[in-house]
Design a protein around this nucleic acid. Structure first.
Lengths: 106, 106
DNA sequence: AATTTGCGCAACCGAATAATTGCATATATA
DNA sequence: TATATATGCAATTATTCGGTTGCGCAAATT
């Protein structure tokens, strides 16, 4: 079973869950209220997020509050770092120009 | 068929393809040499990357050079932006402290 | 003590994925 | 012109995914 952050954030519901708990920790039930799918479906998503360490749990009686794990979120940002210069600089616009010239030559 | 950037980068081979063509444009055949899977398999990945606009193609005779599309890559970075403060500031460490205190209380 | 509530787990199902194989087409090369 | 090369597309298959349903358990509530 592949279980990495990239596979985890591939699902829109899981991305929404991350956005919600980024504001404040939430229980599965309170999370499920924000979606059309069942509580179990949401729980399954949480399980996947937990397995790849994107969320941590805080037990409180029979309730479980799920928190986001910033360190793991940063791993996604880290993967993007080498690509950053591509959109931050004007290299990409230069690429476009070169590409256009090349095509015109043909 | 869901075809967004997040689903696209979920696959490790596709992430590797993006990393390779970020350095310089490549043809499907030259890309396939970097992987164990077949040329067709790589082509299918490229198709997915093309469909979600992460790569652009430059035709040159019978060869097709695939380029990365920085604008689309940035969309991933944009999604991450709201989460940035979670790891860039010391809020996350503060969270850890509060969580520990809460657990001790019980 | 009995009932309700919050949760995880397992089984099941249809849809989507990733890979292979085989084929068709267009461009180079001999 | 015949052959080799670069590529895309379609069919097939095993696997994974996302969802539902039903269950069991522990903590709260009555």
């Amino acid at each position: 079973m592949r279980r990495d952050v990239f596979q985890a954030i591939a699902d829109p519901t899981r991305r929404a869950i991350l956005s919600l708990i980024a504001l404040h920790a939430m229980t599965p039930n309170s999370l499920a209220e924000h979606f059309d799918s069942s509580r179990q479906a949401v729980s399954k998503h949480i399980k996947i997020l937990t397995e790849c360490k994107l969320v941590k749990q805080e037990l409180s009686g029979r309730e479980i509050y799920y928190h986001i794990n910033p360190k793991k979120m940063k791993e996604i940002a880290d993967w993007l770092t080498p690509f950053q210069r591509l959109w931050e600089t004007r290299f990409n616009q230069l690429d476009d120009v070169l590409l256009t010239l090349k095509n015109k030559k043909k």
